[in-house]
Nucleic acid binder design. Structure first.
Lengths: 228, 228
DNA sequence: CTTTTATATTCTGTATGCAGCATTTTACAT
DNA sequence: ATGTAAAATGCTGCATACAGAATATAAAAG
């Protein structure tokens, strides 16, 4: 799956201050992905020796990454027994969705006020692309764009904390939604809600966007509850 | 300030599963306190060698604690240059308060629905104690009880994620509020708002509690903005 | 005297080693 | 055969060691 070469120090270029090699971030990302994709199942122990060998790093930076993820809420630290992948109950998921709903309702309102036309157009572009994936039946790509749209709207609020909290909850829910394969009719409903969201955003209709986002996330619970 | 002996492995007893020695948690708590109390000022570098010696631990667990705090948002990681205490701008604080407000409004509603009479009585007890501190002019203790009340209400929502996010934001804001020494009239206003909060909670008046909490946090920004 | 370059020092990032706790396996008794 | 005790194994938690980057200091040139 992951071997040594895949974890070579990542060097990021691009605009802004020159980013540098950060093994820490790489390990964190990899572990996060492994948890979301279910390679590391809930309740499973994070074996330092084994994982480190698999990723091609020693235990020290690996342990640091695990501590980081623990603070993020994806992993649970058990004294003298290392770390296990956090397991979320149905109520946990429901609770997270309630909070996420509240945050996105707020983000929606702010996005209508503070998002530039260009930024909103970018969200629309993501949406159009997502629709293409829906029509093509590409669930994985659809799913990723879906998340990207919610993240983008949160970002339009221009409120870093809000975007951060939204991202955190979304990440924790990723694995759940990843497995929550809804049927065609529920999927269609979700797409319809997204259409409505984008329309409200383009019309800068705060109340409507907030309402749709709220409804969308309330329905999200209905869509995944069976999968828990 | 902190020497070796103060960091001896903490063993927690009490009810529930027996907690065990956790140096990690101890270091995290100490660093958090040092940041909140301003011993480690914003922008200041977290010197691993020096800090480790001061706390009486080696760099390894210290670094793990720093990574944990980085994920928590109190510290910023700078590649090849260690970690610095995160500095929050005025807008950052305002943004955090907006999110906190939204979360506490939700928590207030849920608390009215789900809090038991006994739990509400406990909040009332905290409040009465806080009033005593107010009358005695004990700002530090007042401040701590104030936070405890907000935390307690969040907990009454019976929503772990909500309580966690509230706690996270409150922690990040602690240092700001800690220095935000408002004058007597503003202080009195804050106390009055708290009185109203408790009354609404006891009456299980969702709308009113939510409204007061929202107003309280909106005013909080007015109270601290000058201190930024 | 200022600027630049070279050197020295300091600190971070990572690997490794060791002690102690947890768990598993094995031996023994019932 | 089953339950218990003891030894053995494996893993975590922490400390230390070392390499390389960053910064500070000193020397040299303009």
């Amino acid at each position: 799956m992951d071997d040594v070469s895949s974890l070579d120090r990542k060097v990021e270029g691009g605009p802004g201050p020159i980013q540098r090699t950060v093994l820490h971030d790489t390990i964190v990302s990899h572990l996060r992905d492994m948890i979301i994709e279910g390679i590391l199942e809930p309740g499973m122990r994070l074996h330092e020796g084994q994982l480190g060998e698999q990723l091609g790093v020693s235990r020290t930076p690996l342990r640091e990454a695990i501590k980081f993820l623990a603070s993020e809420g994806l992993v649970e630290l058990v004294p003298s027994r290392g770390a296990i992948v956090k397991r979320f109950s149905g109520k946990d998921v429901q609770d997270m969705l309630i909070v996420l709903r509240t945050l996105e309702e707020l983000a929606g309102k702010l996005a209508c006020q503070l998002g530039s036309d260009a930024e909103i157009a970018q969200v629309r572009a993501l949406h159009d692309e997502m629709i293409r994936c829906y029509q093509a039946g590409d669930r994985l790509q659809y799913y990723k764009l879906n998340q990207a749209i919610h993240t983008a709207i949160a970002k339009l609020s221009k409120n870093a904390s809000l975007a951060e909290m939204q991202q955190m909850l979304q990440t924790r829910l990723k694995r759940i939604r990843f497995i929550g394969h809804e049927g065609p009719e529920k999927w269609a409903a979700a797409v319809a809600e997204h259409e409505e969201m984008i329309a409200a955003l383009e019309a800068r209709d705060e109340a409507r966007l907030s309402e749709v986002l709220g409804r969308h996330l309330a329905n999200a619970w209905e869509r995944v509850r069976s999968a828990i």
